[in-house]
Design a protein around this nucleic acid. Structure first.
Length: 667
DNA sequence: AGACCCGGTTTTTTT
DNA sequence: AACCGGGTCT
């Protein structure tokens, strides 16, 4: 006799209709707390969804509620993957979800494409055909490798100009990220190098082999290896994919072909995908992103449901009118129309200053004024097109004692003294890391490119190895300092110390060199101390190094400082780094023709349009006050001319949408 | 031959 | 601030 273990209940004729969910069973009242479009998106479970979310429409909120709801429905948080543009964004969402529901929400998988790739590739290194101790090359390291090969190739003749390492790096990266051939990119963007194509391709081949042989992965390789691992569909892939039930991607308009392939690969088993983005905020085409990606998303999956979020909760109608007017001039029109929920406010200000310095002084004054009015410093931001635009302002802010934190531009890990220290640690973790070897060797007096190469050759032929007893190397004719270096690296590589203890050893060795090579070592010393503090948060050297390569360090610096002082600070940021954020009052500086839009963007309609979107993104960051300022006399060293015209994005503006001001000289 | 020093140039935007 | 190229020093 067969005993029935279950009972079937007929729900309708086909059985395809989803069971009706009783809202009362949830802790959170989703229907009340979200608007209808947001609710529809947040309550989605199975299938493919495209959420078109204009600026300030509660996109983050919607994703947070969806996470909470999936958790409430009983799905394992570890089966939810949230891919965001920065880890900061991922952390913020997880925290918000945790506050909304409970700590289970902070256990979901989240991060950038690159950091996710890193963790998968370390975990499934065998299946991905990799050595798990691979080293990640940041952009600077990648260019160093290319330069090494470029110099050794002997292709650089006197008579013909050969592309520099930056150009080569850009071309290769664009090719990998967009799937276009190197040949096409050279033809389109660098036609003057077309007769050197074979050499360029040859260097790329050597470059690729070099990374493979030395266990090095650049940013692009992280994604490429991940993509290949996913498409290989081996048992490792199946195990990973069966554990990931839901994939969500934020800022989808700024993903590229390679990332779209990764998304496709991630959803081979469980086809539950939700991407969120805004085609009018696409600002990363220089990295191979293409906003057509988001337009074509419905072709990538079956039965894609499209949900639009159009109610703006962030800004006043005045600011939205201003922003909408910027997109009015766009060649390619966008599909959304934003309308404000907030009651009216003041018109945005367009402020002309006779000089850059007067612009800075005006901003300082205005910030002090706003603070008097009760706007906290943390609710004010100054945004700019390129990070060096803020140099003059930084001086004025320091004079006025206004604390600020700068985002974008030169980063902590990119400063050469930090790179020096990192190079030691990277050799300790991956003795095959030739780039780091090269850097470390060059620090030593009397060792230049040739000697360093000789030592590296010895290392490659295994006649010299840091694994051997360091006494063996005294046979070589290199000086005592190099022997000391090998002893240090041997200790670092073999001893089972904490990262911070290893760093102490490195600093002890490095400090005399450091003092010798940098005139401003006193200023740089602080960074080394900050790095020591950061290192104490890590138990494994590999994870410290991976984070330093992938994650913007600025977060850790704040964490370190926040413990002893709660001071609020003003935000200075490139527009790119301000993505997704908002402030009560926002200043956009240097809105000058030639700087913003940049004169580099003039000859190409697509890049010019991207500048326009950049201005749109910048102005939609503001909740209450928006100030767009420009100096009327700005010497452009590159072009050798003085720039004076306001940016076309504001001079085109309907005069009724903004108030124009000229700063009084005596001010 | 190879290291080092100096000075002029060059800066978008990021993982 | 960091890079490149060229000239000079060891």
């Amino acid at each position: 006799m067969i005993q029935k273990k279950y009972k079937l209940k007929r729900i309708n004729e086909t059985g395809f209709t989803k069971p009706i969910i009783d809202e009362a069973r949830f802790v959170i009242n989703y229907k009340n707390e979200l608007n209808p479009a947001q609710y529809e998106a947040a309550s989605a479970v199975d299938g493919a969804y495209l959420i078109i979310a204009g600026a300030g429409t509660g996109k983050t909120r919607t994703l947070v509620y969806r996470v909470a709801r999936l958790v409430e429905l009983g799905y394992d948080p570890q089966s939810i993957l949230l891919l965001t543009f920065t880890r900061k964004a991922a952390n913020e969402m997880m925290n918000r979800a945790a506050i909304l529901l409970d700590h289970r929400c902070s256990k979901i998988l989240g991060g950038t494409f690159h950091s996710f790739a890193n963790s998968v590739l370390r975990k499934y290194s065998k299946a991905a055909n990799l050595d798990p101790s691979f080293t990640i090359l940041d952009q600077g390291d990648t260019q160093d490798v290319i330069n090494l090969i470029r110099t050794q190739s002997g292709f650089i003749g006197k008579e013909k100009r050969f592309p520099k390492k930056e150009t080569l790096g850009k071309v290769y990266s664009l090719s990998v990220n967009t799937g276009k051939k190197v040949e096409e990119i050279i033809e389109e963007d660098y036609p003057h190098f077309i007769d050197q194509l074979n050499k360029i391709l040859e260097i790329q081949k050597i470059f690729t082999e070099y990374k493979r042989r030395n266990n090095l992965l650049d940013y692009d390789d992280l994604l490429v290896y991940l993509k290949n691992f996913l498409e290989d569909f081996n048992p490792g892939t199946k195990s990973l994919l069966s554990s990931i039930k839901f994939v969500m991607v934020d800022e989808y308009q700024d993903t590229n072909k390679l990332q779209a392939d990764v998304v496709k690969g991630l959803t081979q088993i469980n086809k539950n995908i939700m991407v969120v983005g805004d085609d009018s905020q696409a600002i990363y085409s220089f990295r191979g992103a293409n906003f057509k990606n988001i337009i074509e998303f419905p072709k990538l999956f079956n039965d894609v449901q499209i949900i639009k979020l159009e109610e703006n909760y962030r800004s006043t109608q005045e600011i939205l009118n201003f922003a909408n007017q910027i997109t009015e001039g766009a060649i390619e029109k966008y599909t959304k129309h934003l309308y404000a929920i907030k009651p009216g406010g003041e018109l945005p200000f367009i402020v002309a200053a006779s000089t850059e310095n007067l612009q800075s002084k005006f901003i300082v004054e205005k910030i002090l004024e706003l603070r008097e009015e009760g706007v906290p410093l943390g609710e004010i931001a100054v945004l700019f097109r390129s990070s060096f635009f803020s140099f003059d302002l930084e001086i004025e802010l320091t004079k006025a004692n206004i604390p600020f934190q700068k985002f974008g531009g030169m980063k902590f890990v990119e400063s050469s003294h930090i790179k020096d220290v990192l190079a030691f640690l990277r050799i300790a973790s991956n003795p095959k890391d030739v780039v780091s070897w090269y850097r470390v060797l060059l620090l030593h007096e009397g060792v230049g490119p040739k000697t360093a190469q000789k030592i590296l050759d010895e290392l490659a032929t295994a006649r010299l190895t840091i694994k051997a007893n360091p006494e063996n190397i005294t046979n070589f004719s290199y000086n005592d300092r190099i022997v000391k270096l090998f002893q240090l690296l041997y200790t670092l590589h073999t001893k089972n110390d904490l990262p911070s203890e290893k760093l102490d050893l490195v600093l002890e060795y490095y400090y005399p060199i450091f003092k010798n090579i940098y005139d401003d070592f006193n200023k740089r010393k602080k960074d080394l101390e900050i790095f020591q503090n950061i290192s104490e948060n890590y138990k494994s050297l590999d994870s410290l190094l991976a984070d330093m390569a992938i994650e913007p360090i600025i977060d850790s610096v704040i964490d370190v400082e926040a413990t002893d002082r709660e001071d609020e600070y003003l935000t200075l940021s490139t527009i790119h780094s301000a993505k997704g954020l908002e402030w009560h009052s926002v200043f956009i500086i240097h809105a000058v023709e030639g700087y913003f839009p940049s004169s580099r963007s003039y000859d190409n309609i697509d890049t010019l349009e991207e500048e326009r979107r950049l201005m749109y993104v910048a102005s939609t960051r503001a909740k209450q006050n928006l100030f767009v300022t420009y100096p009327m006399n700005l010497y452009d060293r590159e072009a050798g001319i003085t720039l004076s015209k306001p940016s076309r994005f504001i001079s085109e503006m309907n005069p009724q949408l903004a108030e124009g001001w000229l700063i009084d000289e005596d001010f």
